[in-house]
Every structure is written in structure tokens, then in C-alpha cells.
Design a protein around this nucleic acid. Structure first.
Lengths: 243, 243
DNA sequence: CGCCTTATTGACGGACCTCAAGCTAAGTGG
DNA sequence: CCACTTAGCTTGAGGTCCGTCAATAAGGCG
């Protein structure tokens, strides 16, 4: 019997109870494991025939660059997340992905995905669910950028990141190790690095969160959650939907 | 032989050549056709067991409300688009959907989707592709909100909308009929209605776009496209990926 | 030690918001 | 036919959130 050895398998199993053949098919996603240095760009916006990856270890981020050189980070990826899944369904990738830390990731070929759809429908459903969950996070991020002021936006982002990490068993309720710089925060929050710095100071002095020295510490979770209007519903991993 | 009678079927066929059994399965998505008045809320954020729909006629929008009553529109949907696909994969819907105009839409049950995954893998692949294309639009929108100033943001949005409509055979290159109010624009662009009004005037006086009386007219497409940094690559419908 | 990345803080300006008032067009009922 | 309402659009004045520019620490790391 196959065990749930990978973060992806355990994530998908939270949605669909996967059979032995499903897990075997899923295991094919994890051949071709590779290591990349921090800062390496795995997927290049605008280029054709890009691969996808499954992240096994470390942090990555997906982003787009604008004509004037500015960058908008779309999301950060943590172990168990796909990298560049969209880029194998489109001819050319609509975004870039780079390693934030040193990472380990397995290359997934288009044929792996397509075969799984043809021969393991439950796995296919699970992949659609994972893609939908990613989209839900992007949507929440979009609301964050469109309608929340900088301080609330930052608080919301840090709470979401903490919740996501907890779901894959990283960090504690009170905080987590965080390899991001204030420039990463600026690029994901649509702010200038200078303003991010001021907002972080404000949040720290108000006794809400401390973002410092590679760690995020939640100093007052109830007050912070209320301030941010944070509701983790859209991240929830219920009992399997398909038993 | 089945013909491509619905906008959804023709959209999916641009990605995957669907067989007769695929099309038959897809036809099941279109039983239960219903009509809704403008302003009717079809899908309710936070409620359980919501349906999904396929939009056949008219415009809809998906959005989230914030605690202070503000609204962020995530996207507009036009014929051939799914409404609330994510809400049937999650226990509770993470967003709301309402009709912008009078619309016609067919209710899609979770079982319709799941059966199609089990018995029509090519159709399943096509649905994943459609979901990924929606996500690509949300991502571009996110970049718009995070990093583009109001005027460029507005220009980009109108160009994207025009391009999407052309792909389903609505409107012309020079413009399109548009049922949106300036309040809709404000909610989708993350701006105040007052500022939207000023930006539209600016764009009109600069001879770039005219948004007036239920129509959008592109007055200088090359200059507008350059201003917005608009590249429709992410919307492209190439020859079928799976022949 | 010298270099480069990251963090910090101040001064100043501008993009966008809020409040407020008034306009137009279309509908509704007397 | 006309008062009245309502939804949508328009414009001005004034304030604020956040960006840019600039300078200085404060660490990693060869």
C-alpha cells in the first residue's frame, strides 16, 4: 500500500480519497526531482512549451513584470503547490515563477497531466479542485489590492500566509519562519518598499504582528483577525468531498 | 452529428476537439435553462450547496463584499462563461454572482461536472483549460489593480473586455455595446465612481476611448494599446491543443 | 575589510478619495 | 401633460494615503 509521502498527495487527499491507482499515477508527477538555487527563474513569461513543477521543499513566487520594470507578485507557493500549471495548458506562459529560497521541485510534463485525466478521473477532479483553490486565493488577493488600505492589506496577507502554512504543517498558530524580504511584500501587496516598512512598524507598535529577522509573530491574533476582516473559509480543507 | 450550438461548446472546442460523446455529455450542462432579471443574485457568498451555471445570454458579474459594505467585482462574465464553478467544488461559495443585464443561464449540478470527469476525459481537460483561462484573466486583473495607475488600468480593462467579446463574436474591433455603469467600473477597477468619471473624461478628451451611452468606442487603438501595455496573448484561442 | 542586500526614517508631492452640489434622462402616477 | 422620483453622470474643493527621492544604518559574505 502506498503512503501519502508527498505534500501534494496529502493536500489532494484532503479533498478526494485517492485510490492506489490514483496514487500511483500521482507518483509519476514526482519523478524528475530537481534542486534550484534561490532566485532562479523556473518559468518564463512569454516563452513557449514551459514545464510545470510540483514544489516539494522551499518557497517560490509567481509574478508578472510590467513594461516599466515594475513587478507584481501574484502568489507565493509553498510545498505541495503546483508551479506554472497554467503554463502547460497555454501555448505560452502568462507568468513567471522564481525560487524565493533554495527549492526542490519535480518537473511535471503535459503528458503526465493529460494521462492522469484520461486514466484517473478522481485524480483529475482533485487537480481541478487544487486549481480552483489556487484561484480562490488569487481572488482574495485581488480584493485585497482593490479595496483594502495598506495596513489592513498587509495584515490580511500575513494571516492568510500563516493559515496556508499551518494547513501543510509548517509553523504554529502564533507565527512562522518567513524567508520574504520587505521588497517581496511590496511586490505582492502593490505598495512601495518604503511604505511597507512604515506599515510594518505601525503593526508592530500597535502590538498586532511582528515581521522581523525572518519570522512573522502574531502578537494579538483576535484583534489582528478583526482588523483584517480575515475569514479562512476559502482555504478550508473539509473532509473529503468525494469519499 | 452534433453541431456546436452553444457558446460554451464553441469556446471549449477551440481548445480540445470534442467527440460526439463529449458533446453529448456537454449538452447535459444545458438542460435546466432559466431566465433571471438584471440585478438578481444567482450565487451567494458564504452559503452552502450553491449551484453553478453556464451563461447563455447577457452579462453577469462575480464579486465579494467587504465588512464596510464596499464591493470588489472580480470579473464580468459573458456568454459561454461558467458562473460559480468554484462554488460547487467548495462546501460554501467564496463569492457572489449577480446578473448585470437580464440573462439566460443553465444550472449545472455538481454531478454533471463529476460525471463528465469520470466518463469524458477530454471534456474534463477542456473544463480545466476553461478554468485556467478564467484564472489567467483574474491574474491580469490583479496586476492591473496592484501596479497600474487609474488611467492605464481603465484602458487595459476596456481593451481586455473588447478582446473577450470579439472572441465570442460580439462587437467589432472598433467598439462594443456595453451595459455597465460607471459604478460597475469603479467596483471592478478598485476606484471611486467619481474618479472613474474623471478618468473616462480624460481618456475621451485624449481621443483614446469613449465610454458613453451604453457603448465603448475605441478611438485610437494603436495608441490605446501602447498606453495600456495590452497584450492579448493570455486570451488567445489557438488551434486545438488536443486534436 | 569592502561590497551588496536589506532595513529604516524624513521631507515633499501627487494620485486618488470624500463630501457636496447639481445635472440629465427615463420612468411613474396623478 | 406635468410634478415627482430615481438612477446615472458631472464637476469642484479640500484632505489623505501612499509614492518618490534621499540619506543612513545594519547585516551577510567573499
Amino acid at each position: 500500500m502506498l503512503t501519502l509521502q508527498t505534500p501534494l498527495a496529502s493536500k489532494l487527499s484532503a479533498f478526494v480519497a485517492l485510490s492506489a491507482p490514483d496514487l500511483e499515477m500521482l507518483a509519476r508527477f514526482h519523478r524528475r526531482r530537481r534542486t534550484f538555487q534561490a532566485g532562479h527563474e523556473l518559468i518564463h513569461e512569454g516563452e513557449k512549451n514551459q514545464s510545470a513543477f510540483v514544489l516539494a521543499e522551499g518557497w517560490a513566487c509567481s509574478y508578472k513584470l510590467l513594461p516599466d520594470g515594475e513587478r507584481q507578485i501574484v502568489d507565493f507557493q509553498i510545498p505541495g503547490d503546483f508551479l506554472g500549471l497554467r503554463s502547460i495548458l497555454f501555448r505560452t506562459s502568462d507568468h513567471s515563477v522564481e525560487a524565493v529560497t533554495r527549492i526542490e521541485a519535480s518537473e511535471v510534463l503535459a503528458s503526465d497531466i493529460l494521462d492522469s485525466f484520461a486514466h484517473a478521473p478522481r485524480l483529475a477532479t482533485a487537480v481541478l479542485w487544487a486549481a480552483s483553490r489556487d484561484e480562490a486565493m488569487v481572488v482574495e488577493h485581488l480584493v485585497n489590492l482593490g479595496r483594502r488600505p495598506a495596513e489592513i492589506r498587509t495584515a490580511h496577507f500575513l494571516l492568510e500566509l500563516g493559515a496556508r502554512l499551518r494547513l501543510v504543517g509548517v509553523g504554529e498558530a502564533a507565527g512562522f519562519e518567513c524567508p520574504l524580504t520587505q521588497y517581496h511584500l511590496a511586490d505582492v501587496l502593490g505598495l512601495s518598499a518604503v511604505h511597507v516598512n512604515r506599515v510594518l512598524r505601525q503593526l508592530r507598535e500597535d502590538g498586532l504582528v511582528t515581521f522581523q529577522k525572518g519570522r512573522v509573530d502574531f502578537d494579538d491574533i483576535p484583534r489582528l483577525t478583526r482588523l483584517a476582516g480575515f475569514d479562512p473559509e476559502y482555504l478550508d480543507q473539509p473532509r473529503p468531498f468525494l469519499p
